[in-house]
């Protein structure tokens, strides 16, 4: 079952169908070219995008427009990239930012 809203009573049918391949934590997925990485991952059923640096608690999309920085991931080796503001491209390599090994709660 798809999570995409392919037909909408007011907005009509989705016109984009140019799917590209990318990886998230070494697994392959398909997304629409230039849609946000956050949307592509959610469409693939992925909600957890990173783990908190200190506590390791799982985090996902919160504000979806770049304000909260909760969705930050590594894209092609660059850390701290907001998935909600990053257009998906063919061959993109995406990794979760995770808990830092040395982190201990006070």
């Amino acid at each position: 079952m798809t999570r995409r809203i392919l037909d909408h009573p007011i907005l009509g049918k989705m016109e984009d169908n140019n799917y590209v391949s990318f990886t998230f934590n070494q697994k392959g997925y398909k997304g629409l070219e230039n849609e946000s990485l956050a949307a592509a991952l959610l469409a693939n059923g992925i909600r957890t995008l990173r783990h908190h640096e200190e506590s390791g608690s799982p985090r996902g999309i919160y504000c979806n427009i770049g304000h909260c920085y909760e969705c930050r991931v590594s894209v092609d080796g660059q850390q701290g990239i907001r998935a909600c503001l990053t257009p998906v491209k063919e061959g993109m390599t995406v990794e979760s930012d995770g808990q830092l090994p040395s982190s201990k709660r006070r």
């Binding site: 919160y62 504000c63 304000h67 909260c68 920085y69 909760e70 930050r72 701290g80």
Partner: peptide, 10 residues
Amino acid sequence: AGMGYCGGRS
């Protein structure tokens, strides 16, 4: 509180 990554926006 508010001194982290998002700059306190949340």
